[in-house]
Amino acid sequence: MSWQLFQQDALTWLANQSADQYDALVTDPPYSSGGLHAGTRTADSANSKYLNNPGKYPEFSGENRDQHSYMLWSALWLTEAYRALKPGSPFLVFTDWRQLAVMIDAVQAAGFTYRGCVPWDKTEACRPAKGRFRQQAEFILWGSKGAWHDKDGPTYPGIIRCGVMAGGPKLHTTGKPVPLMDALVQVCPAGTVLDPFTGSGTTGVAALRAGRRFVGCEREEAYYEIASERLSKAA
Rank of each mutant, 00 (worst) to 15 (best):
S2C: 09
M181K: 03
V178T: 14
A234K: 13
M181V: 09
P29A: 03
T202I: 10
R213P: 00
L100R: 10
P154Q: 15
E138R: 15
R219T: 10
W73M: 07
P128I: 10
F133T: 12
A10I: 04
D195G: 02
P169D: 09
T192A: 01
Y70N: 08
M1D: 11
N64T: 03
K170L: 04
F91P: 00
L78K: 04
P154R: 06
W13R: 04
M181H: 02
A46T: 07
A19M: 14
F112Y: 10
E229Y: 08
D182A: 05
S48R: 14
L78I: 14
L25E: 01
A166D: 15
R219I: 12
L231G: 01
L78Y: 04
M103D: 10
I104N: 08
Y223R: 08
R134D: 14
Q186S: 04
L208I: 13
S18W: 10
S48E: 13
V26E: 00
R98C: 10
D66C: 02
V205A: 03
S74V: 12
V118F: 01
V93F: 03
F197I: 12
Q99W: 12
M165F: 06
H37W: 08
P169H: 10
K86V: 03
R213M: 02
G39L: 07
E59S: 09
F91S: 00
L180F: 13
A210P: 07
A147C: 03
K130F: 11
G168R: 11
T79Y: 06
K170D: 05
K56I: 05
V205Q: 02
D23Q: 03
C188G: 03
L14S: 01
T174C: 05
T192E: 01
P119S: 08
G153V: 14
G88I: 05
G204K: 00
A38L: 04
R219F: 07
S18L: 13
E138C: 15
Q4V: 12
R98Y: 10
A84F: 01
P58Y: 07
R230T: 04
G175F: 02
G158D: 11
T79H: 07
K56S: 04
P128H: 11
P189Q: 03
Y114E: 06
F139C: 12
V102T: 15
G55E: 09
R65T: 10
C162H: 13
L5W: 02
V107I: 09
G168D: 07
C217E: 00
L85I: 11
T192M: 01
T27W: 00
S69F: 04
W148F: 09
P58M: 13
D96Q: 11
E59P: 04
A84T: 05
D150F: 10
K130N: 15
V193P: 00
L100W: 11
Y156S: 02
I140V: 11
K49H: 10
E229Q: 13
A207G: 04
E221R: 15
L141V: 07
